[in-house]
């Protein structure tokens, strides 16, 4: 076989694998556009006409509210994660102080700790202090987001040329100004990577949301989807419409930022 044929065969293999990977998602979107009850008799059919009744059902089932709750929680958490981890990453990368390595290692342990290992004490704390639903979940989200974002940002900050920092110091800038005005703009790929990974994680998080959110009106999408499914157990079309609505915002975010992701990871992964 010629080399060209081999390359062609390899690409065909990848294309087939890609098709298999996309199948469940394609099935979801197509299914969400078909009348809810026909899905159960003919799971592989195509929509006969553009039918949005499932999306109406999803909307009436409060998916819009869950979407809003998740958006608020995700944006606030990601902003706090970056706001807290960027200065820490800068100090670990560029300032010498005693205990630096120790504290960095201490924060990195968080990469491996299961959420379930802190669930009960935090549940008790939230009940005892009567912490509001949003605060109750944003706290752990931020804490669990810190290790990865500190790691990735530090790795990127280490590679910023020394001359840039020295020039800023000659201009009389302090470390805080150097961080926000010199380092952060340079580290855009790393910040984008951090933002997308944390947003995806928080948008998807289940155990904390399941345990800590008391009011159904405050539910985030994962918990909301579960209650929605419970109410529409036989209406598969509506379930698939709810799922589609839950997926779209992050997909858009991912497609916008994806070209940064490998670059942002590379600095972090090779160290």
């Amino acid at each position: 076989m010629t080399r060209r044929a081999l390359v062609w065969l390899r690409d065909l293999g990848f294309a087939l694998l890609a098709a298999v990977f996309m199948l469940p998602l394609a099935w979801t979107v197509i299914g969400s556009l078909r009348p809810g009850n026909t899905l159960r008799t003919e799971p592989w059919g195509l929509p006969e006409a553009l039918d949005l009744e499932n999306y109406v059902a999803a909307w009436e089932g409060d998916i819009g509210l869950y979407l809003l709750n998740s958006t608020v929680v995700t944006i606030v958490s990601v902003a706090l994660i970056i706001g807290l981890s960027a200065p820490a990453a800068y100090a670990f990368a560029r300032l010498r102080f005693s205990g630096s390595g120790l504290i960095f290692g201490f924060i990195l342990t968080g990469l491996l700790i299961p959420a379930h290992a802190v669930l009960i004490p935090l549940y008790q704390l939230n009940s005892a202090l009567r912490v509001g639903d949003y605060l109750a979940i944003i706290g752990p989200y931020v804490a669990f987001g810190l290790p990865l974002s500190t790691l990735l940002l530090r790795a990127y900050f280490v590679e910023v040329p020394c001359e840039l920092m020295e020039a800023a110091i000659v201009d009389g800038a302090g470390h805080w100004r150097i961080l926000w005005q010199v380092f952060m703009p340079i580290a855009r790929p790393a910040v984008a990577t951090v933002a997308i990974f944390q947003a995806a994680w928080i948008w998807n998080e289940l155990p904390f949301a399941l345990v800590f959110i008391k009011e159904s009106a405050h539910q985030t999408l994962p918990v909301g989807l579960l209650s929605f499914q419970g109410e529409h157990i036989a209406n598969w079309g509506a379930i698939l419409a709810g799922v589609t609505v839950a997926v779209v915002p992050l997909m858009i975010l991912y497609l916008l930022f994806q070209k940064h992701i490998v670059r942002g990871l590379t600095a972090g992964a090779v160290k």
Binding site: A88, A91, L122, W176
Partner: peptide, 21 residues
Amino acid sequence: TAWLMVLPAAAVFAFYITYPL
């Protein structure tokens, strides 16, 4: 300065993860 930069992150981490652990 270094401590002021590191402390908030370390404190949040200790409060929500290390202590409950």
